[in-house]
Nucleic acid binder design. Structure first.
Length: 424
RNA sequence: GGAGGUGUCGCAUAGUGGCCUAGUGCGCCCGCCUGCUAAGCGGGUUGAGGUUGAAACCUCUCGCGGGUUCAAAUCCCGCCACCUCCGCCA
């Protein structure tokens, strides 16, 4: 959530952000009146409660008729206090429900508009000219079959559509990528983490995934637990209800976990291969920082992501995601999209968001800076999303004979292999 | 899954219905004293919210949520976490 004081003192800033996100401006006025109702009901309750406490002390000292009189008044008061308490709790609940649905502001730098209105920040590398090389590139599914890297049919047999087994070199490739990513992250000052992939509702709610994205989340009703769609969720909740010393910031974590996504509403989209799946594994960077530092940290995360894609020798572009496509929590978001030859387009491989204090307020994560205790900023960024990284590697580094070249930086993690050969 | 125990301020502990506006010790911060340090002395030391120009002030916060009562750290119920034991299990 954003700072309530912004709502009171500067509602136009929120209206402007809502407009740029293509979201309702009317919610601002609803929030303002809900906030007023909430505050006045708190005032009523507190006045009654203060009187009750005062009289309670007198009761203890009084005796005889005096005590009987006081008890009569105080008994009546007890009912009023209870009613006022209930009324203020209800008003608070109404406000909170509305407020929780309000997205973060949008950075002024974020492009205005929807999904298609991103701005290209940078293009790195050049897509290969397969025609010039004299062969038609195979898509990742075909390459995967020849290499024995994954098995879609049996994934569907065992778990359903959009599931797969990574097999043979595919499984080895993932482990190599994970090791390489974790090792690099550790060298950059990130603490390697393997977090739980099953979390309580508060963690899901706090990171903002039960809003617009709720349909995309797996829920286990019997235990009221959620399967995370990214380790951002447990890594953000890791320090919930804590006050961190500002001197210890930024704190950088790199989490490796499975990610589960229902992909509701994506029927018929990206059905071929393992591009869009219900489960994949990912190494995610997560940083707790001061709000002032968050902008620089965001650039740092982007630089790490680019460094990673450079090491894998993939052609890609960086886009500045438009306000309407930021999601609930982010104020700004950069995606790195790798070139997928057989699709003839750039597709998202990594994404980094600055959530400023939005998640920290929901999860109650604060920092102590001298005398001040204030919410801190959280940021996240993908380092290595296994399936899409494997797709990009196979397609971009394929050779005319169906083999795949292993980029130099990855070779040590595959026992020095330079080429992945088709099975037979 | 079953039985029992524990949960109080950063840490340790006191507190069995009103004198708790939660005491004490340690730690920490500020000051005094002192060749320096230590000791000693005095003061401060959870967080959230309301109100205000600001301060004063008020409300909430003794694991969490309900209940009983005029009044709850204290009594009752539910939940959570941790510990011990039994069962099951990678």
């Amino acid at each position: 959530m954003i700072d309530v004081r912004t709502l009171r003192d500067n509602p136009d800033e929120i209206r402007a952000a809502q407009r740029r996100r293509g979201e309702s401006e009317a919610i601002v006025d609803e929030l303002i009146s809900a906030d007023e109702a909430r505050r006045s009901s708190i005032g009523r309750y507190e006045a009654l409660r203060a009187e009750q406490k005062q009289l309670g002390k007198k009761v203890a000292q009084a005796s005889g008729d005096e005590k009987a009189d006081l008890l009569a008044r105080t008994k009546e008061l007890a009912g009023e206090v209870k009613a006022a308490d209930a009324a203020s709790a209800e008003a608070a609940k109404a406000f909170d429900a509305l407020f929780a649905g309000l997205p973060n502001l949008a950075a002024p730098e974020a492009p205005e508009g929807g999904e298609e209105d991103f701005v290209v920040r940078e293009i790195v590398g050049e897509p290969r000219d397969f025609a010039a090389e004299g062969f038609e590139p195979l898509d990742h599914l075909e390459l995967g079959k020849r290499l024995g890297a994954f098995d879609i049919e049996r994934g569907a047999k065992v778990s359903g559509a959009r599931f797969y087994f990574l097999t043979g070199i595919g499984a080895q490739l993932e482990l190599a990528l994970v090791s390489m990513a974790m090792e690099r992250a550790a060298a950059w000052g990130f603490t390697p983490m393997i977090p739980p992939a099953l979390v309580k509702p508060s963690a899901m709610e706090g990171t903002g995934f039960l809003g617009q994205a709720a349909d995309d989340v797996y829920h286990l009703p019997k235990d009221d637990l959620f399967l995370v769609g990214t380790s951002e969720v447990p890594l953000a909740a890791y320090h919930s209800d804590e006050i961190l010393d500002a001197d210890t910031l930024p704190r950088r974590y790199a989490g490796f976990s499975p990610c589960y996504r229902r992909e509701a509403g994506s029927y018929g989209k990206d059905t071929r291969g393992i591009f869009r799946v219900h489960w994949f594994d990912k190494v995610e960077m997560f940083v707790y920082a001061t709000p002032e530092d968050s902008y620089a940290v965001h650039e740092e995360l982007l630089a790490h992501e680019q460094d990673w894609l450079n090491a894998l020798e993939l052609p890609y572009r960086v886009i500045d995601v438009a306000a309407g496509d930021l999601g609930l929590s982010a104020i700004r978001k950069f995606d790195c999209e790798a070139w997928i030859p057989t699709q003839g387009k750039y597709r998202e491989l990594t994404s980094t968001s600055n959530c400023t204090q939005f998640q920290a307020r929901r999860l109650s994560i604060r920092m102590r800076d001298g005398e001040q205790v204030t919410p801190l900023a959280t940021l996240n960024g993908t380092l290595m999303a296994s399936t899409r990284t494997i797709i990009a590697l196979l397609e971009n580094h394929q050779q005319a004979d169906g083999s795949v070249r292993v980029p130099k930086a990855l070779q040590p993690y595959l026992g020095g292999r330079e080429i992945l050969e088709p099975l037979s």
